[in-house]
Nucleic acid binder design. Structure first.
Length: 286
DNA sequence: CACGCATGTCTTGGGGAGAA
DNA sequence: TTCTCCCCAAGACATGCGTG
């Protein structure tokens, strides 16, 4: 996986937050999954959350990498992620990261603001991933988006209703409910919505569900799709884009320089498709 | 409890943009 | 033009959750 994938914010124990420092002092060998209790204002956690929500796994915001996230916080442009989508070009003039040596805005600044606008119309599941809810990655987020159709409905669903979703168990369901119980979390959703971020399932996701129930794994590089586009194409048709090959995998799509997943597919007798076969699979009617 | 699979972490290498 | 920094893309693998 990418260095930008996964919830990298989850295990942060930075030195620039007093509460994290105390937590570190309390560490013992038996501790697992340590988190700074100061999750709202802890600078390092905030930086990691910004970094994560900009990653391809979430809202795929151009420019918003580790350095940009750091600059937004250090230069005082953001105090938390709720203000992200309200940023303007004018705001960025006070940050060296977004300006040239002569003080004028760099191309990076314009790309960043344009990327924020693009991100406002991302599918609902990506918005859910971007909220950094514990245990909720792309797969769980897609399941929740498909079932509930809007963030509003997810936020008001009970643990039982959430856990009823295929692919979501009680731990994930409780995690979602706990997340929405925090007022400052609800404030993020509110401010993003005001800034224009789509909070409902879009129509583009309602393609014929020709891959419903199928688990498909992609390995290697495809000529006409990057990995996210391939995943999105599978998911949009009701399939599941899995990261690992098993006996239940419907197809393994093999591009240039495939990895061990191809070997695994051969070993398990899973059907293998080249890119042309994958494209036919996407376009064929049920 | 075992299995399947998603998540999280680490690694390597390529490409683009700005600085020197 | 070259160098450096940062972002991006992808594979491998360990861990742990969800399910039957």
């Amino acid at each position: 996986m990418s260095a930008r994938s996964g919830s990298e914010h989850a295990f942060v124990m930075p030195s620039d937050c007093p509460e994290c420092g105390s937590l570190l002092r309390q560490m013992s060998d038996g501790d697992v999954d340590l988190r700074c209790p100061n999750s709202r204002s802890c600078p390092a956690q905030l930086r990691e959350r910004l970094y994560y929500l900009g990653s391809r796994a979430a809202l795929d915001i151009d420019v918003l990498g580790y350095e940009a996230a750091q600059a937004l916080l250090v230069d005082g442009l953001l105090t938390d992620e709720s203000e992200l989508f309200s940023l303007t070009l004018q705001d960025l003039t006070s940050s060296a990261f977004f300006t040239k040596k002569d003080g004028s805005l760099s191309a990076i600044a314009e790309r960043f603001i344009a990327a924020l606008e693009d991100a406002k119309s991302r599918p609902l599941w990506r918005v859910i991933v971007a909220l950094s809810i514990r245990h909720v990655g792309p797969t769980a987020a897609q399941a929740l988006a498909t079932r509930f159709g809007s963030l509003e409905k997810i936020s008001t669903a009970s643990v039982v209703e959430l856990a009823d979703v295929d692919g979501v168990g009680s731990i994930i369901a409780e995690s979602v409910v706990e997340w929405f119980e925090e007022e400052w979390h609800r404030n993020i959703v509110k401010k993003w919505a005001i800034a224009g971020v789509l909070m409902e399932q879009g129509e583009e996701e309602l393609l014929p569900q020709t891959l419903a129930g199928m688990s498909i794994v992609v390995t290697g590089s495809l000529a006409h799709f990057n990995r996210d586009e391939a995943t999105a194409a599978i998911v949009a048709r009701g399939g599941k884009a899995s990261g690992s090959v098993s006996k239940k995998t419907a197809y393994v799509v093999v591009g240039e320089a495939p990895g061990s997943k191809y070997d695994k597919a051969i070993e398990l007798g899973v059907p293998v498709l080249d890119e042309a076969g994958f494209e036919r699979l996407l376009t064929e009617e049920k």
